[in-house]
Design a protein around this nucleic acid. Sequence first.
DNA 1: GTGAAAGCGCTAACAA
DNA 2: TTGTTAGCGCTTTCAC
Lengths: 352, 352
Amino acid sequence: MAKGKKRISIHDLAAELGFSVSTISRALNNAIDVSDATKAQVWALAEKLNYQPNNLAASLRSGRSNMLGVIVPHINGAFFPAVVHGIEKLASKAGFNVMICQSSEEVDREKKHINALLKAQVDGVLVSMSNTTLDFAHFEQVRRKGIPLVFFDRMPELPNVCGVVLDDYLGAYQVTKHLIEQGCRRIAHLAGPQHLNITFNRHQGYHDALLAHGLPYDAALVVPLANSRENGGVAAMRHLLESNIQLDAVFSAYDFAAAGALQVMMESGIQVPKTMALAGFSNEPFTTMVRPRLTSVDQRGELMGEAAVQLFLQLLKRTDTFTGQRIVLKPMLMVRDSSLHGQLAQTAKNQQ
Amino acid sequence: MAKGKKRISIHDLAAELGFSVSTISRALNNAIDVSDATKAQVWALAEKLNYQPNNLAASLRSGRSNMLGVIVPHINGAFFPAVVHGIEKLASKAGFNVMICQSSEEVDREKKHINALLKAQVDGVLVSMSNTTLDFAHFEQVRRKGIPLVFFDRMPELPNVCGVVLDDYLGAYQVTKHLIEQGCRRIAHLAGPQHLNITFNRHQGYHDALLAHGLPYDAALVVPLANSRENGGVAAMRHLLESNIQLDAVFSAYDFAAAGALQVMMESGIQVPKTMALAGFSNEPFTTMVRPRLTSVDQRGELMGEAAVQLFLQLLKRTDTFTGQRIVLKPMLMVRDSSLHGQLAQTAKNQQ
DNA sequence: GTGAAAGCGCTAACAA
DNA sequence: TTGTTAGCGCTTTCAC
């Protein structure tokens, strides 16, 4: 009977039962070639002695850590938490543990996390880039080691990278088209950073929808956001109003910035959506709490997380991890009061 | 020159430079007793060959994984992300990597995560319990192994457990006192589960503040929330209104539920705060986006995360990890429009 | 300042 | 069905 504080290992179990360590190992792993009687004995003793397997040793030996590294820019708002949830759901089903890291939108932290994950011998890395990531050498490092690398949402425009993205272009196109159909003709866009695929595509969708409907693209109507938060939207909207440009709608690349814009509109006595329509992007929960409720685009966060894991699992089977596969998810336009420029607001009641 | 795909180890470095593996190990760890010249050589070659240390091996051998396990109920809303941020900040400064796990408010997942973390040989575990956790055996398992265990926010009422909590009692007391000072006399409370310390204490603070100010505690004014979200608040508020009980204020144990209550009030034509004051708890970002802005209590999330890590680091130094130390953080009352029952709403403008 | 050697706890050939 | 054996890559005494 093992006494003292020493943590017990399969050797202790082996000694106690008179089996070899390999039999113990096999029994604990429920291998096919161990008799049920033996398994029962081993499991009983393991339970009794409170045996705790050591993954470090198993991983070191087997070369598989069953750990999945995930790097997200942040976990504020609803989107990235939803993605993470989707990732964890599918990953744990596939027997993987997930290590979540936040880059806090800093490329240096992103690099550090990549390094830490590699040192920890993760079996794969899922990344959504920080918005300060301009070179991609640290990602190459992962690929060079033959470790599956999957991007989600924010991915670099490089050949042969795998990833799952939302069709941001389509989402923005649909929002803009919707605003046009509501009778809006002077639609402003609060734009995110153009070096990121997501916000670049949102801008493109806006641009193309205008042209497709015979409206001019006016650069004066496009205001870059200093940040994606409320105060970014406040500043951009103030700038827009101060410029005295004609305006009957605003499409913000982010919901939080849209909330800031809404605040400025309210303070300026502008009626939303009657005088000015408004739409955001992300379908944050607060969009149904503010008045008027905010029209937005759902980003399918959970689905994206699941798709990313699926892609990873696929890559794991292959020898070449540079297949350049992409999964593109369809966005969902959520029409709410804030964009019903040309209709009675009641119409949206059922769609909230 | 190592060629091929084989990952290189300290043995390769040793062979290449003609040193022993121990010297390489020491050099890489920047040990005091290796000559600078040797270190320089080793580092240069490591860089050149793209050497990647293997933490699994190091941890297995040294017995320290430098990993910290964190279990949170979820990462929705602003509070837990803030805590996680605080944890990561301090932990990474102390050289620890953080594994974040979500229990999704399910005690079974909590147990699984505890197990996974123990198998991964983490050096410590930080937990905020799920709201379905009623027995604490899985936590005992951690302590029995001598692994530092620190709770935050939601902790069990057990002897000798360490943790950092907000003074929820004080926060609720302050909110209630504030409402009373605004002239409210019939203050309802939308209550969270009473088996959790946090919501129990919020209820107590409410209770005691009433009595301390000569107001009766009326059980009919206390409505249990089915959940902490918007629809929980909607249901509870409807119940309250349908009961036709006299009412001039509502204090919700959660901001999201308060948002739901606000919605019901608006739909019922109740003027907030003139006819009915409202306050929540958590200081979610959306509290400043809704109209009227929501009075709330800030939970000091980031500070709590940092304090939890500090407690962990303290515990790490000791042999007895059952010291029962507690850190109690002071809440911050955030007075906004929704509770200015007895004043002109403008007064709050500066305090938002 | 450096080397030799043992071993952390486990897995996975290969034998029997 | 079970045992033997050889490490996975690193740290860490104990020598020299």
